[in-house]
């Protein structure tokens, strides 16, 4: 999802009997639905995985501002501009909660930025695709936020307390974003021929990248098991992808749009749609840095960070002077 391809550290999941008493107590607490808090003991692997997962999610929120920022200055009405601004403001806010949640695990926000800029931490593959028309603002809300919600709603029950609580706030705002996105799609699909064409084109380009957001198929995803035992991953990739397709296809039909998949059909027996897998070689290319916008997105973030250095230095220097003056006055 917003955290794809997080590699678990352990080789396999230990049984309770194989664990030492501390680890066993930790696992039993999770099994009983308890929450782990920052000061509690936790296995090093749990900590490491969570930092990667929450950090990747936070980075996705921040980089995710860019494809939408691409249209803020071209939003077609004052109301649409205001809604889009409110949305990217929410996303920056989500980034902030998530960096704070990750910081409770013993890493700083600056360290996470450094890891992002050096390519040691990733963000969701979806933000490496371009936003080419106004309909993409609808499709991002409808499909991308829709896919994100699929994953994030269960994460409200994740075992790590600060992450679960951040997710509660985030989910409320994300479902609002998804409705806004669908509203743009409705307007486009009920509009002129050109608008309908934009809407169909947006779906054509974003459908498979949205399916990729859930990560590779379970049979190829060797790292899920430990994360699921720790309840930092609540459902398998394929379960969530199926749920997303089942929810989204009727919405596409309602909009009068065609999902770009010849093999799409309702399977009565399983009570869900059969559908084509995305091109996983494309997914791995994007993860490796070869998506259409990888280079630009990361460079934009690096440039923002570097050209903002003097601002951060100035603010810190001023704060230090104020502290010194306050101390001298006491």
């Amino acid at each position: 999802m917003y955290a794809q391809m997080i590699k678990s550290t352990g080789k396999g999941v230990k049984t309770l009997d194989e664990m030492d008493p501390q680890e066993r107590a930790f696992q039993e607490r999770i099994d009983a639905g308890g929450k782990i808090e920052p000061r509690d003991w936790m296995p090093a692997g749990y900590r490491k995985n969570l930092i990667r997962q929450i950090g990747q999610h936070a980075h996705s929120e921040i980089v995710g501002q860019l494809p939408e920022g691409n249209w803020i200055t071209r939003a077609p009405t004052l109301e649409r501009k205001a809604i889009l601004l409110a949305k990217v403001q929410d996303e920056a806010g989500h980034g902030l909660y998530l960096y704070c949640a990750a910081e409770t695990l013993g890493i700083t926000r600056d360290e996470m930025f450094e890891a992002l800029h050096e390519g040691r931490m990733k963000y969701s593959s979806i933000f490496n695709y371009p936003t080419l028309t106004w309909a993409d603002m609808g499709a991002v809300g409808w499909l991308v936020d829709g896919a994100a919600i699929m994953n994030q709603v269960p994460l409200q029950r994740t075992s790590y307390g600060p992450y679960a609580r951040a997710m509660v706030r985030i989910c409320k705002e994300e479902s609002f974003h998804q409705r806004q996105g669908f509203d743009i799609m409705m307007k486009m699909c009920n509009g002129t021929d050109a608008q309908k064409k934009m809407a169909q084109d947006a779906l054509n380009r974003m459908w498979y990248p949205s399916l990729m957001m859930f990560g590779p198929s379970d049979k190829d995803s060797v790292h899920s098991e430990q994360s699921m035992a720790w309840k930092i991953k609540m459902n398998t990739n394929d379960e969530l992808r199926q749920k997303f397709v089942d929810q989204t296809v009727p919405q596409a039909e309602y909009l009068g749009l065609t999902v770009p998949d010849d093999k799409l059909s309702w399977n009565e027996e399983k009570g869900g749609y059969d559908f084509s897998e995305p091109d996983w070689s494309e997914f791995f290319d994007v993860l490796a840095g070869n998506g259409p916008c990888n280079q630009e997105r990361l460079q934009t973030r690096k440039d923002a960070w570097e050209s903002g250095q003097w601002v951060r230095d100035g603010m810190l220097a001023h704060a230090a002077k104020k502290r010194a003056a306050k101390l001298a006055a006491e």
């Binding site: 803020i72 920056a92 960096y99 934009t300 923002a304 601002v311």
Partner: peptide, 10 residues
């Protein structure tokens, strides 16, 4: 609004 995503700190 042109600053979106490019400010010196979050």
């Amino acid at each position: 609004s042109e600053w979106c995503g490019k400010a010196p700190v979050l």
